[in-house]
């Protein structure tokens, strides 16, 4: 399988000030690393830094042994990241957004792949709607569909359960597990104990000191027990 993601002595933060302890982790192909912690602990900052969207204060992030660089084409091909960016082309429909990603990643038969994702995320009835006409949950589904329609060896998800109904959360958990089963690595930031238990193979708890636990302990920490 092989190591997909390695973070060594990673320090993340803003204006030179770290927001949490040093992060060191590695994710093998087929593994899901959960990242949990209280609000403001720095989970999303860690995920953004690992995705290369934010410069680290110290330490390195490597994907397949190469330093992460979102400006490099190979990196963009391998890493799919879904954050809470509520940004869409105002005049493109749901279907057209997904078609853009499918074509941009040179998928075979992009139209049918788009149909499959629309079906999975329950957006078939809204496929010709523009983003302004969608509910916030539907926009979230669209973002997730865009992150999952494309192939990737590392999938980074920042609180994907946000604004999703319970049924969709379960389906999403199954989808993440399936991604890992087919050889992908996943970094999952979550506040949902069920999602963590259903998917994660290990778990980092972000705090002043970052510690690794098994998903059961991580879920207990989220639940506050």
């Amino acid at each position: 399988m092989g190591t997909v993601l390695e973070a060594e002595g990673l320090l993340v933060g803003y204006a030179g000030a770290p927001v949490c302890g040093e992060v060191s982790a590695s994710v093998e192909a087929g593994e899901v690393l959960g990242i949990v912690g209280v609000n403001g602990a720095g989970k999303s900052t860690v995920a953004r830094t690992i995705a290369g969207r934010q410069a680290s204060l110290a330490g390195d992030v490597k994907v397949h042994g190469l330093l992460i660089d979102p400006d490099a084409v190979p990196c963009r091909r391998q890493v799919s990241a879904v954050f809470d960016d509520d940004l869409f082309f105002p005049s493109l429909t749901v279907r057209e957004h997904l078609l853009l990603i499918a074509r941009g990643h040179s998928l075979d038969d992009p139209e049918s792949r788009v149909e499959e994702e629309l079906e999975f995320f329950g957006l078939m009835g809204r496929s010709h709607a523009i983003p302004d006409a969608l509910s916030s949950g539907q926009r979230r589904r669209l973002l997730l569909a865009a992150g999952l329609i494309r192939p990737s060896s590392l999938l980074i998800l920042d609180e994907p359960e946000q604004r999703l109904d319970p049924q969709m959360r379960v389906a999403l958990g199954a989808r993440i597990a399936e991604h890992a089963k087919s050889g992908g690595a996943v970094l999952l930031v979550t506040h949902d104990p069920q999602l963590l238990l259903a998917t994660a193979s290990s778990c980092l708890v972000i705090d002043e000191e970052v510690q690794e636990f098994d998903p059961g302990q991580g879920a207990s920490i989220i639940a506050g027990s």
Partner: peptide
Amino acid sequence: GAEATWWLTLP
């Protein structure tokens, strides 16, 4: 913003 999210991530 939209171009950054939907274009820049393409390989």
